[in-house]
Amino acid sequence: MPAALDDFLWTYQSLIASLGVNGLLALSMYVVLAIGQLSLGQAAFMGVGAYASALLSLHTGLPFPLELAAAMLIPAAFALAIGAPTLRLSGVYLALATIGLGELLRIFLIQSDFTGGALGLSGIPAKAGFTLIYGCLAAATLALMLITRSRIGRAMEAIREDETAAAVSGVDLPRYKMTALVVSAMLAGLAGALNAHASSFIGPNDYGFDAAVTILSYALLGGVGSPFGSLAGALVLTLLPEILRPLQDFRLVVNGAIIVVAVLYMPHGLIPWRPLRIGARP
């Protein structure tokens, strides 16, 4: 590899990895938003996946794919527990319950010595390279694209547009909602595991309310019309702080302003187009 390219990749290694991880997080958010629900627990699901896989890496000799599976299944169990009571109610309840989940997770991680307390876990082996991260991202995007274009996708859109009408026309609301939440928790958990094994260092304060809000902003900035919208949102909001770095103190101010303007003047996100659907009329 030429030295200049090598330097470039080295310089932007964390950024490139973050782009992939944040893309996965945006997709995980998209899955929930696509059926008109709102979860502020994506950061918590991510944290559960990150800690689960990191602890496995540090204490066991399990093969990495099995660790990734655990990092997806454990958050899925959390999603089942939190979804059961709240998905029956209006969207706000899921949002607030997932905030509670995030804070409880943080409190647990801080007081437990096994998870390293406030100092977190370090020295996590660097098992997640670009190939793995972007492989996962591509697979998730492809799968979601196919789902969006299928009958399931049409049902999801119907739920998002009008729950009552969707239920009347025979869509099994509880099952769709729960499946979406569980899938989204699995994606977030996977993102967390990849992130932990790319950055080698995780802490209990990385998965709080702020992180949840950031993940939400990826998906909402991009729009929930298609998985690509969410991906674009993640791309913009991950690169933005880097591009705006010279603004120093005003960086986050600009970030916030961009979100406001984007939503006010583009209420359906950056990429509002819906994907063509198999069998749909043009």
Binding site: L15, S199, R245, D249
Partner: peptide
């Protein structure tokens, strides 16, 4: 050459890679 980490590890890492690599 100052880089702001804003207290975030990710930004601190990106800043270090910028300063060293570029």
């Amino acid at each position: 050459a100052y880089e702001d980490s804003a207290g975030s590890k990710e930004q601190a890492i990106n800043a270090a890679r910028q300063l060293i690599g570029r």
